[in-house]
């Protein structure tokens, strides 16, 4: 399974209506799709849920990336199919494979169309997280800040990782030779510098943070604010309705796989 499947979860910074939806509404939509797909194994339902997301993906202009990640996830889906093929009826295998693809698609859709900033802002608004953050780290905005900083650092750390690999290879380190034990040990000269660079960077960032007044007052004002638009309320309504409906049907009827 190549790393290309991760591409299907990376944020694509476009400005489509789907991107502009409030992340909290989108997240509830994700839940609204996951709940029925976990509760039921009806193939028509699963296919339906999958198809319903396609227009969303198209409006978000992330269809190509989604298809690429599906292709890369073929291995895992095949594995799921095969395992279930030998442990149950064929229709089950089909349903479960569909469910896997469905879940992958939903999360992929979410992460491709929601910017880490917006996610951070959304997290910052969740009361529980603010409480946890205050109890655990001392400041209500600390947890969401940790999240956005982590995301911000990913590309930077990736560059550093490549540089460390280059530097150590230039000293004769060969990462693709030797038995398993040797190969694992060969990663020590990569991991230690990376770790230390990460620590040093964190310290420098912390200094810079304090130099800009962090954490400041208890109630930080944010320049950007998440606000629900009418379409978000619509989405929230539909998702909530779908979730409630799913549970009600689940407890009152038995829905067959086919």
């Amino acid at each position: 399974m190549s790393l290309r499947v991760l591409n299907g979860f990376k944020f694509s910074s476009l400005k489509t209506p789907v991107h502009r939806l409030d992340p909290r509404a989108k997240f509830l939509l994700v839940i609204g799709i996951i709940v029925p797909s976990l509760l039921f194994t009806n193939i028509y339902l699963l296919v339906g849920l999958l198809i319903v997301q396609v227009p969303l993906l198209m409006v978000g202009r992330v269809t190509k990336r989604w298809l690429q990640s599906l292709r890369a996830g073929v291995f895992l889906s095949a594995l799921i199919f095969v395992v279930n093929f030998f442990t149950g009826p064929l229709v089950n295998a089909v349903a479960l494979t569909l469910r896997f693809l469905l879940l992958m698609t939903t999360f992929s859709f979410f992460f491709m169309t929601t910017s880490p900033d917006d996610l951070g802002l959304a997290i910052d608004k969740v009361g529980f997280i603010r409480w946890l953050s205050r109890r655990w780290l001392g400041y209500p905005n600390a947890l969401s800040f940790t999240f956005t900083t982590a995301v911000r650092l990913v590309p930077t750390m990736a560059v550093d990782a490549q540089t460390v690999v280059d530097a150590q290879r230039s000293r004769g380190l060969e990462l693709d030779k030797g038995n398993l034990l040797k190969r694992v040990r060969n990663y020590i000269p990569i991991l230690i510098p990376l770790l230390l660079i990460a620590i040093r960077r964190s310290l420098e960032l912390a200094e810079a943070l304090e130099a800009r007044g962090f954490p400041g007052k208890e109630r930080r004002t944010s320049l950007f604010e998440l606000r629900f638009k009418p379409v978000d309320y619509l989405l929230l309504g539909i998702s909530l309705g779908g979730i409630v409906l799913s549970f009600w049907v689940f407890f009152h009827y038995h829905v067959p796989t086919i």
């Binding site: 900033d117 911000r152 930077t156 943070l209 800009r212 007052k217 320049l223």
Partner: peptide, 26 residues
């Protein structure tokens, strides 16, 4: 070090970071 003093995901947010900490109005 230029890069280790920028913590937000966009330039605009980074510049806003300091004033946000001061508790000013939007």
């Amino acid at each position: 070090n230029p890069e280790n003093q920028l913590f937000a995901l966009t330039v605009e947010k980074d510049v806003a970071f300091g004033p946000e900490n001061l508790g000013l109005t939007r």
